[in-house]
Structures are given as C-alpha cells and as structure tokens.
Computed example of a mutant assay.
Amino acid sequence: MKYRINELKSGLKIIQDKEPSIIIDIEFIKPGKGQSFCRIKIKKLISNKIIEKIFKSGDLIKKADIEEISCIYLYNDKKFGYFMNEKNYEQYIVNKSILKKHYKWLIEELKCILTFWNKIPIFIVLPNFVKLIVIDTSLESQNNSSNNTKYAKLITGAFIKVPFFIQINDLIKIDTRSGEYICRIKN
C-alpha cells in the first residue's frame, strides 16, 4: 500500500531508503506558482537517524508493515531477551543487539512494547520509569563535599549516580530515557 502526500500525517510509518521510518513532522507548502509539495521530518526506526525529505504532489510513499505488540519481559540468556505477548501468550526471542541501551533496565515481568517490521523485531519501547533495587553503593564520592552523589549498582547490573542517603536494598525509581535517578520508593 502507498500513501499520497495529502494522506500523510505525523505518526505514520513509511519506508524511506529501504528502512522503516516514522513521520515526526510534516509541512505542506502550496506556492503561488508551481507544484505544491511537502517537507517531512522522518526518523528511521532501525538506524535512529532523523532526516528531512521533500515530496512533490504526485509522489507515492510506501507504507511500512509495522506492528507494535504489548509484551512482558521474561528473562535473558546473555545473547537474547525473551518476551511474551500479553494477549495470546506467544513468545518472542529478541537479539541483545536490538535491546541496546535498554538492556540494563529490563527486569522480569516488565511491560514493554516490541516493534516488528515484516514480523522481525526491530526495537523496544520501555515504560518511562522503572523501579529497581540497589545491590551495592560506592563511597568514593563522599570525599568531595561539593558532590552530593555516589554510584549505585542496581539489580540489573547497571550503575547510576544516586544521592548519599541511598543504601543497599533500597528500591529506587529511574527514568529509562535518561538513565537518571528520580526518587527512593518506600516499601
């Protein structure tokens, strides 16, 4: 299936340069003379590159066969992550290279969204915040009075900066987009 430029809108998934992409922003331009066109800002879903393209009024843009499935993270075996579809309990195996920077926030039973292109997983969307347990903290930063943070190792193996009052076995909230500490959660 193909879209005409007058059918385009933000959020549509298209194929651009043989890669699935999402339209971030679109601007229709109808000059006084000549043919109308649109300027589109596109984010490529596999390479994460953001590009701008101009399409003329007669151009057709190919629709991407993208499917987003709500899943639950089960476990990993160092090479693959295993997920289960919430609705039909079907399981998916996802290569660690696709999980990339999100790998350090994955805990059992975490709900997330897997995005598939032609039935192959291409990336994962985590919730904006996760709650993780601190398993170790460093005291190295305490010598510097201007720095009120220290490093904490989390149950997933990730290291983040936390305030001095965070202790081992504390449950903390982390922003998965930035990797920053948000707050301590009382049990």
Results as ranks from 00 to 15, higher is better:
residue 5 I to N: 02
residue 7 E to M: 01
residue 9 K to E: 07
residue 15 I to K: 03
residue 16 Q to V: 12
residue 19 E to I: 00
residue 20 P to S: 01
residue 21 S to E: 06
residue 21 S to R: 05
residue 21 S to Q: 06
residue 22 I to L: 03
residue 22 I to C: 07
residue 23 I to L: 01
residue 24 I to K: 14
residue 24 I to P: 07
residue 25 D to F: 09
residue 26 I to K: 05
residue 34 G to W: 05
residue 34 G to S: 08
residue 36 S to Y: 13
residue 38 C to E: 05
residue 41 K to I: 11
residue 42 I to A: 02
residue 42 I to N: 03
residue 43 K to N: 11
residue 44 K to T: 10
residue 46 I to K: 06
residue 48 N to G: 07
residue 48 N to E: 15
residue 49 K to A: 08
residue 51 I to S: 04
residue 55 F to D: 03
residue 57 S to L: 09
residue 58 G to M: 10
residue 58 G to R: 10
residue 62 K to F: 02
residue 62 K to C: 07
residue 63 K to P: 01
residue 64 A to D: 01
residue 69 I to V: 10
residue 71 C to H: 00
residue 71 C to S: 07
residue 73 Y to W: 06
residue 74 L to N: 09
residue 74 L to H: 01
residue 76 N to E: 08
residue 77 D to M: 00
residue 77 D to L: 00
residue 78 K to W: 04
residue 83 F to A: 01
residue 84 M to D: 00
residue 84 M to E: 11
residue 85 N to C: 04
residue 87 K to S: 03
residue 87 K to V: 06
residue 88 N to W: 01
residue 90 E to Q: 07
residue 94 V to G: 04
residue 101 K to P: 02
residue 103 Y to D: 10
residue 103 Y to A: 13
residue 104 K to H: 09
residue 109 E to V: 00
residue 109 E to Q: 11
residue 113 I to P: 03
residue 116 F to H: 00
residue 116 F to L: 09
residue 118 N to S: 10
residue 119 K to T: 14
residue 120 I to Q: 14
residue 122 I to G: 01
residue 126 L to E: 10
residue 129 F to Q: 11
residue 129 F to K: 15
residue 132 L to P: 03
residue 134 V to M: 06
residue 136 D to S: 15
residue 137 T to V: 12
residue 139 L to I: 15
residue 141 S to C: 15
residue 144 N to Q: 14
residue 147 N to L: 15
residue 147 N to E: 14
residue 149 T to S: 12
residue 150 K to R: 14
residue 152 A to W: 03
residue 153 K to Y: 09
residue 156 T to G: 07
residue 156 T to N: 04
residue 157 G to M: 05
residue 158 A to D: 14
residue 159 F to N: 15
residue 159 F to I: 13
residue 160 I to H: 05
residue 163 P to F: 08
residue 165 F to R: 13
residue 166 I to T: 11
residue 166 I to C: 06
residue 167 Q to I: 05
residue 169 N to W: 08
residue 171 L to F: 09
residue 173 K to L: 12
residue 175 D to C: 12
residue 176 T to A: 08
residue 178 S to Y: 14
residue 179 G to N: 05
residue 181 Y to N: 03
residue 182 I to N: 11
residue 183 C to F: 04
residue 185 I to D: 07
residue 186 K to L: 13
residue 186 K to D: 15
residue 187 N to V: 04
